[in-house]
Design a protein around this nucleic acid. Structure first.
Lengths: 131, 131
DNA sequence: CGGTATCCTGGCTGATACTG
DNA sequence: CAGTATCAGCCAGGATACCG
């Protein structure tokens, strides 16, 4: 092998792999993180293409894993905010190296996601990922 | 929002998300990395539970994305080695933060994966991930 | 040995309509 | 507004058999 004693074990990923390999999970975690706090229908608008069912299902999953918090208010009309837990924010930070890696392969990338926090057409480079 | 100007854009993940969200892709990349160079059937043994079809499909995908290299020898019996490219090795490094994050949620984890490079029952902690 | 070929299944996902 | 209910489709992935 290349580097004796440097074998990496992916066992820790167990249980977590179900999250990070879910199509929408990372997007949602990141979007909530970008906003700090956001409501259900605003998420629907930000994450273009997701269906209400899928969004609801994924939110429940994320809450089950303690990555997000659901905060409901007894108002009319109803209001529910979603926030990242500490774990969720840490996960959000943990994917940044993968983002950086993706960028090294492409140089820069033109933002075209639906997130209102990112100016459309902005060129994303490594400098945008150094928090 | 929490930190103005610190919004994260996941656009760079496009094209890459198909890889990292594949159930077996990360496992395979990591396993090849652990061995430095490994043959098809040895991968089958190491990655317990994967079917030949899925393994073959995923290997092709990974090769297409230039994450691994296929090296075939004209011998009888045939022999094919798989290795990580530079990109592949970088990806392997990039997922370590996620591993570390997973560990912070669990403390330590007992290795039970089929990888022959990791002693069964070894307790994995953060110290095993500082390369 | 290193794969294909073939068939099949179940869970994820989407669309749409509806409700408290 | 914030979801649920319902139905339907796709396709990653599994089992098995076979091939060069």
């Amino acid at each position: 092998m290349a580097k004796p004693g440097k074998a990496i074990c992916l066992c820790p990923l167990e249980g977590v792999i179900d999250i990070i390999s879910k199509k929408w999970a990372l997007l949602i975690v990141n979007e909530i993180g970008n906003h700090g706090r956001i409501r259900y229908n605003d998420l629907m608008k930000e994450i273009q293409g997701i269906s209400p069912k899928t969004l609801a299902d994924t939110l429940k999953e994320l809450a089950k894993y303690n990555l997000i918090t659901r905060e409901a208010f007894n108002e009319i009309p109803p209001r529910v905010d979603y926030l990242l837990t500490k774990d969720g924010e840490e996960l959000r930070q943990a994917i940044i190296p993968i983002l950086q890696w993706a960028l090294t392969k492409k140089g820069t990338v033109v933002a075209h996601c639906s997130c209102s926090m990112i100016p459309k057409g902005k060129r994303i480079g490594k400098e945008d990922l150094s928090l």
